[in-house]
Design a protein around this nucleic acid. Sequence first.
DNA 1: AGCGTAGGCCAACACGTGTTGACAGTCCAG
DNA 2: CTGGACTGTCAACACGTGTTGGCCTACGCT
Lengths: 197, 197
Amino acid sequence: MNGSKSRDTETVGGVRRSDVTRNAILEAARERFAADGYERATIRAIAKDARIDPSMVMRYYGNKEGLFAAAVSFDLRLPDLGTVARADIGRALVTHFLALWEENEEFTAMLRVGATNQAGAERMRDTFREQLLPAARQACPDPEQAPARAGLAASQLLGLALTRYVLRLPPTVALAREEIVAWLGPTLQRYLTAPSP
Amino acid sequence: MNGSKSRDTETVGGVRRSDVTRNAILEAARERFAADGYERATIRAIAKDARIDPSMVMRYYGNKEGLFAAAVSFDLRLPDLGTVARADIGRALVTHFLALWEENEEFTAMLRVGATNQAGAERMRDTFREQLLPAARQACPDPEQAPARAGLAASQLLGLALTRYVLRLPPTVALAREEIVAWLGPTLQRYLTAPSP
DNA sequence: AGCGTAGGCCAACACGTGTTGACAGTCCAG
DNA sequence: CTGGACTGTCAACACGTGTTGGCCTACGCT
């Protein structure tokens, strides 16, 4: 509906006076989406956290979906698996994802939303296809098998995130990061590089 | 509020005339919860599917939480791992869970609800503790390590359910059941029975 | 100084939710 | 046949939601 995207409301150097508000909204939105999921994260609650009026959210991000799209990034920042020693790929991936999930809760939000919201699931499929799958193509020998192997890897990685950060199964939460790497690393290594069983 | 639980409304042999309605409600609830998750599954929609009035749901199940509790079973029907050959435990578990998820969608509902709803997550923790953990105790050598190993197994099993039945990542959906058993069986076998890395 | 405009708040709308209570048909025991 | 319960429907309540438009303030340029 409101197509004006760039070029509205700048003063000097593209820095708008309202940027602090915009960022406050985004930050609050990230936390709420991560904690509550898409449906339970209300615009009113987000606005309250950001100490502004709910209508500001609408003004800056159009609607709730727009806010979610703006707040939650889907950049996995995957390392270039070409530079990683072939035998360390599994451990490297687990380490990377652990860091990703623990440094901020955006990706937990992705999970919660993907589990309930149709559009959220679609977006996770895109992320998988555009980021994890190319990485798998670099790691695994037969490119034709890459999708299946990436799917297997995703099942273990997302399962870890689900049980540890969303469901919070006590034994999974209690595991030290090194333990997780030691256990899951070989699994991913096998899914990505071992010959088909 | 209405404490009358048993002994109301029976005719002969404990068979109530309204049982067909009750079952219709439960069946519709299961489908809706599985498809939409707890928040998006509305009582009105469930009632419509069951072709009755929304108020009947309240009468028979008290409130939405009561309906969810009644509709979704949390019995994993795990086989006795004592009777399974030690080397086949991993494959047996994967096979069992695949059958569980594909025969009805209750357990997908559990996942969706656990991901968004606090009470749902709590209930999944209970299920884990009361059913998967005892099974793991039978399977793994050192009983002290059983919780961690059960947690690892849960991460892979729930991750499979998440990617295949909830997010529907195409490569994971495309895998044949035998392929999944062949890939994930060894993983679970290792998590449950192999020595600590 | 004056003015346009961006930033912000307030009140309200329309809608969907879970939930409740009053009312009508229906079956069965006495 | 009659009374009382069970089964079911209808309409409404109270509330929270996303969303909208009008209004006031205050900044920044000329």
